[in-house]
Amino acid sequence: MKNSILHFSSVYLAQTASLVGKKESEGPLASYFDAIEEDPYFGTDTFEKAESEMARRTLNILLGKSGKRPEDIDLLMGGDLLNQCIATSFAVTKTHIPFLGLYGACSTIIEGSIVASAFINGGLVKNAAVMASSHFCSAERQYRFPLEYGSQRTPTAQHTVTGCGAYLFQNEPTPFRVKEAVIGKIVDNGVKDANNMGAAMATAAVDTILRYFNESSLKPQDFDLIATGDLGKEGHEISIELLKRCGYTLGDIYVDCGMLIYDIEKQDMHAGASGCACMATVFGGHIFKRMQNNELKRVLLIATGALLNKKSALQNESIPSIAHLIHICKE
């Protein structure tokens, strides 16, 4: 099918903000993040409140960095991994900004960026803020065992990033133009193992990447960086193999945010990182700053999401996965 690519004419990325937890602050990207909080409770008494507090602070950092007040923002959207996206809803309560809640699991930040770009490009709003958060402790409670339960993780398991990323898009030109996007399709490849989400999401990422390059006049070589969200080591290697079989060798420019944020060996992170905050903070913190420093000009972001829940996993269902793509370039 043609027309996979959405073209935007006047959407610009104005600013990003990122806030991470302790484990992330011990990783190789620590110096890129705007703020670090070592207290997993973020000064609250539950992990769920902690995630809301984290998201609230990140939004404040974004507003501060871009010199805007809440009432200057036309539209806010975001999501997280908790039931009914509750962390984000509490986080934005006091902002009084028109709000759209989104759920795309770990692809939420790019899902939001695409929706924001569409609103701006269509002239409905002048600017829009997008945010996505995840917290290791609340995610464990949501999906897996109690935190202190003595269980062993498999080598393909991934670690949920504690953090939040927020981006501000607008119609006024900045050097960072959002050029194109591809909305992902749900790909269900039959993988049921929630401890191998990389294998579940790899085909979705490959599907979206192929749909983009099949239609685009650009080639993989034209990009300085092609980054997937949170395939982890396992999914990253599978996607390289699948892309190779389809005739694409992306080489060194092809990276995965889930492999960048931690020192996988030293921090014993098994297959790497996952979670909404994975791509949200790695792009918002690391990649965007590299673009600002002129190290990168043309970037493709492919955020991957494993759309499972605890009940579907117990009912032995496979993991429906998705990958959304966005193309940002510095002009």
């Binding site: 065992f145 109690p146 935190l147 202190e148 003595g150």
Partner: peptide
């Protein structure tokens, strides 16, 4: 406990310690 169990696996699970952990960890959580 979870730090020991990460290495011990069934070593901490099978003795009565595993049962204790299985009750106390969700209670704390």
């Amino acid at each position: 406990f979870d730090k020991i169990a990460k290495h011990a696996g069934a070593g901490t699970l099978v003795p009565i310690t595993g049962f204790s952990n299985a009750v106390t960890s969700p209670a704390i959580d």
